[in-house]
Amino acid sequence: MTMFSSRNWREYPQRYRLEASKFKKSGKTYFPPRAVDPETGDTAQEMVKLPDTGKIVTYTVIRTAPSQWTEIAPYALAIAELTDGTRLMAQVVDCDVNAVKIGMEIRIEFRRIQSESDHGVLSYGYKFVPKWY
C-alpha cells in the first residue's frame, strides 16, 4: 500500500536520529517518545538520543516475505536492547541471516527501509548490523 510521504516525514526525528523521551521522575527512556510515562503517569520529560549499540534479545528470519520485501528476502528481524536498556525492533543486515543469534552485539546504521517502486518516495531509517569493530 502506498505510504503518503507525510507519514514518514513525521517520524524523521525517530527514524533518522533515534530521538526518544526520557521521563524526569522515573528516569526511563521510551522510543518512540510518548506523552505519558506508563509507569508513573509523569509527563515531564526531555529529549534524548538513543545509543547506537546493543545486543539482540530475540530474532527471526523472514523467509517467506511479502513482495514489498522480496528484494532483501530472506531477511533477519530482531528486537535489540541498546546499552541504555531501551528496546527496539529492526532488521539485521550485512551478515548471513543464519548467523544471527540472541546475545549478538549490534550497531545501528542508517539504511534505506522502503522504496515505493521506481517512482515513489524513499524511506530511510535504522537497521542493525553486527558490531564487528
Binding site: 528484494e71 543486515v93 539504511r111 527501509i113 537497521k127
Partner: peptide, 16 residues
C-alpha cells in the same frame, strides 16, 4: 552496495 544502501545512507555514515 546491498539494496538498502545508497548514496544518502553511505553519506550519513561517513558524515557520522
Amino acid at each position: 552496495p546491498p539494496p538498502d544502501m545508497d548514496t544518502i545512507t553511505l553519506a550519513v555514515e561517513a558524515a557520522k
